[in-house]
Amino acid sequence: RNSISAASPPLIILYKADTMVDANEGLWERLSAAAAPGGSSLEPLLRGFFESGFQAHVQQFVAERAPSFTEVCADGSHPLIWTQFHQEYRDMFEQQLDLILATLEMTKAELQEFCEWLQAHVEIFEEDSEGLHSFLEAVTASEEYESFLKAMFEEVRRQQLVAEPPQEGVAQTQELEVCVPEGLGPGQVLAVDYLGARYELVIPDGCEPGMSFRAAVTVAA
């Protein structure tokens, strides 16, 4: 009966590591061949996110839900529907990634391993020739709630400017309806967020907690 020496496990690990490197090199060659002229091995993956059909789908999603993002928020809280819409937004990008990987005959595990392999190359040679950092930033943008809010607020402003074009030299103002929260009353300052900007408003006389008042604020063009 053959015995296995204590040196066997490292050799097995080394063999597996070599196999992984070979697999990633093969994937790099395959993706590079599928890239547009001058593109990196990650270009075929990114291309799917910039495909016109998907971009139109994203724009429609944002445009249809923008009216829900005109709400004035006090105390830093946001409506629950915003987080629900963000989850739908993330799911949309996740589904697109699945389609891209299926087209390229890749799995998510292979993509993760490939990115780790490229990351090791970046750290060793201090050169991001494949644009890994830009790729990761692009494919993870939908995961970030703040980035999602920025996109939604920009669409709100776009729709507002279409409905009411700005006059040259005239500051753009919006009239907000604000509800006075518990613990605050007339004469006190209430900080509210609207379209990503914070405004400090003085609660007018006669407005008690639970009551609403209107205030005009200057918004970015």
Rank of each mutant, 00 (worst) to 15 (best):
R1Y: 11
S3M: 08
S5F: 07
A7V: 13
A7G: 09
S8K: 06
P9Y: 09
P9N: 10
P10Y: 09
I12S: 07
I13W: 08
Y15F: 13
Y15T: 12
K16S: 10
K16P: 00
K16L: 15
A17T: 10
D18P: 00
D22E: 12
N24I: 10
G26C: 08
R30S: 15
L31T: 06
L31M: 10
S32A: 14
A34Y: 01
P37N: 08
G39A: 02
E43V: 03
P44Y: 08
R47A: 15
G48F: 02
G48L: 02
F49D: 09
E51G: 03
E51L: 06
S52Y: 00
Q59W: 06
F61I: 10
V62C: 04
E64I: 13
E64S: 14
R65Y: 08
A66I: 03
A66L: 03
P67H: 07
S68R: 13
S68M: 12
S68I: 00
T70N: 11
E71Q: 15
E71H: 12
V72A: 05
C73K: 07
C73Q: 08
C73R: 09
C73V: 03
A74G: 08
A74M: 02
A74Y: 05
A74T: 03
G76L: 05
S77K: 09
H78C: 07
H78E: 12
H78N: 01
W82M: 09
T83E: 14
F85T: 00
H86N: 10
Y89M: 04
Y89R: 05
R90E: 09
M92I: 03
E94V: 08
D98K: 04
L99R: 15
I100Y: 07
A102W: 00
A102C: 00
M106Q: 03
K108T: 11
E110S: 14
E110N: 04
L111S: 06
Q112M: 02
Q112F: 10
E113M: 08
E113Q: 13
F114R: 05
L118Y: 05
L118F: 04
Q119N: 13
Q119I: 03
V122G: 01
E123R: 13
E123K: 08
F125Q: 12
E127C: 14
L132Y: 07
L132I: 11
S134E: 14
S134I: 02
F135L: 09
S142Y: 12
S142T: 07
E143F: 07
E143A: 10
Y145D: 02
E146A: 14
S147Q: 15
E154S: 13
E155D: 06
E155I: 01
R157F: 03
V162A: 15
A163N: 06
Q167I: 11
E168V: 10
Q172D: 00
Q172A: 03
L176C: 04
V178E: 02
C179V: 10
V180L: 01
G183W: 03
G183L: 04
L184A: 01
L184E: 00
P186W: 04
A191Q: 09
V192E: 01
G196R: 07
R198C: 05
Y199T: 03
L201S: 04
V202M: 04
C207I: 01
E208P: 00
P209F: 02
G210R: 04
R214K: 14
A216Q: 14
V219S: 07
A220G: 04
